[in-house]
Design a protein around this nucleic acid. Structure first.
Lengths: 249, 249
DNA sequence: GCGAACGAGTGGTCAGACCAATAGTCGTTC
DNA sequence: GAACGACTATTGGTCTGACCACTCGTTCGC
């Protein structure tokens, strides 16, 4: 038989440590979170402590933490420590961004996905948003009207408005998904927003969405959001065309 | 003077290397992908090569690749190499899973998010799914009927059906989002599926969704999907209750 | 010809050291 | 006494070099 190797001891006894060190670290932190022994904002043990306690090298600890960091679960600050990410849940949009680059997601596809998500979210938001939440939306709409001559500022409030609508759904899962997709298009549009032509129309659309939500008209809110996204997609196409024209010159 | 110290040359000449090594590695790979010099399935240069070419340590290269791996952009196989992830684009569901644990997403919230996504997807799928795509759905439905007495197998085909519907939308962004959320609930339900009572009803619902999509009836497909998810949510609640009862005994 | 053994190459882990940023401590100064 | 500033222990970030575990193409033996 030779007993040449393979995994030493697997079936019985000592059921642990079958997994590679990096995975053990991720699982360890994960269990701490799921067991509510680590809450958002909490500081993790230092890398050196984790390495000692788990009997792995610090390199493996760092490897695991690097994964968690990429997923947006923790955040490390040199000299201070590693902390559980707090604030509103939000998948880092970087993953989707890279996948977008990798598979060449088109703007049409992005807008369509946004449409499916945000139209539904607008409906839910109309049914549930609190007064405070609708007030936030109102503020962003006002800021948009105030920034009609400053495209970059306008865009910032645009994104914040959509975030506020998502928050109004009071569903953190949906809010995280909306955040992810809208951030992505934000990155994209930031480079072309200077060529936007009709910000007033866009602001007006946002105002109509806000009014529908505030009045609790779910279907009206859904329709307005759908219409808004349709126009926004057209606007982006126009801006792209202008950018392409200029590039050719 | 001693000349010990600090970063040699920063202001002028050699304008690069401002960013930390790990970020440089991520950016480097990202540029390779965005410049289409790396396609899905391609093999990356070895870690030692990257380290040499970029003039950073292998540890930093590994750090960057670890991030990309956590995002599902690349995948490393010991002894073979590191490859750009191919296959259908799919965010690793692990990020959402950890966020779910971290913020305590409830089943209701998950189902609601699924509802918003998949109802919309069902409508799009009815409008666009190819014959091959609907055929895949039909196969999964058939497999579900064949597995009425085997809950675990049933559940596998259940998930695959929803994946097939998402594929039918022909929108990779939506497909990735659906994949992420449904995988999450799959993990959850796998532990309670044994207590399911009425798989036949569930299979029948899936069949109705399939028929609506095949016939191109978008609104019917949306309604059927919404109804299905509503029933599935109830079923999960019942299974949970049973599990809780048994646990108490 | 074909399977088994080999070995170069690759990612995974370990060890120890040093660098860089942080945050608390303690003294100085006004 | 309060505010400011240098000092220092602590912590994450990087580097180095070594070894391990696995993969896969090659080569050897039958």
């Amino acid at each position: 038989m030779r007993a040449t190797r393979r995994n030493p001891a697997r079936a019985s006894a000592s059921a642990r440590s079958a997994a590679p060190p990096t995975d053990r670290v991720v699982g360890h932190i994960r269990r701490l979170i799921e067991g509510h022994r680590l809450k958002p904002g909490d500081r993790l043990p230092t890398e050196r402590e984790l390495a000692r306690d788990m009997k792995v090298s610090r390199a493996s600890v760092r490897s695991g933490l690097q994964s968690l960091s990429a997923m947006g679960v923790v955040r490390s600050r040199q000299g201070a420590g590693t902390f559980i990410q707090d604030g509103p849940p939000s998948l880092d949009s970087q993953p989707l961004g890279l996948l977008a680059a990798l598979h060449g997601f088109s703007s049409e596809e992005m807008f369509e996905a946004r449409g499916v998500l945000e139209v539904g979210v607008a409906g839910l938001s109309a049914q549930r948003a609190s007064g405070e939440q609708t007030a936030t939306m109102a503020e962003e709409v006002a800021s948009m009207f105030a920034a009609l001559n400053d495209p970059h500022t306008f865009l910032v409030h645009d994104v914040r408005f959509h975030r506020a609508v998502a928050a109004g759904s009071n569903n953190p899962v949906l809010a995280a998904l909306v955040e992810m997709t809208s951030t992505l298009l934000f990155e994209r549009r930031r480079t072309t927003i200077e060529r936007a032509r009709d910000l007033r129309e866009s602001a007006e659309m946002h105002r109509r969405i806000y009014l529908a939500i505030r009045r609790g008209h779910a279907e009206t809110a859904r329709t307005a959001m759908a219409e808004h996204l349709r126009l926004a997609e057209e606007a982006l196409a126009v801006e792209d065309a202008l950018a392409a024209t200029r590039a050719a010159a």
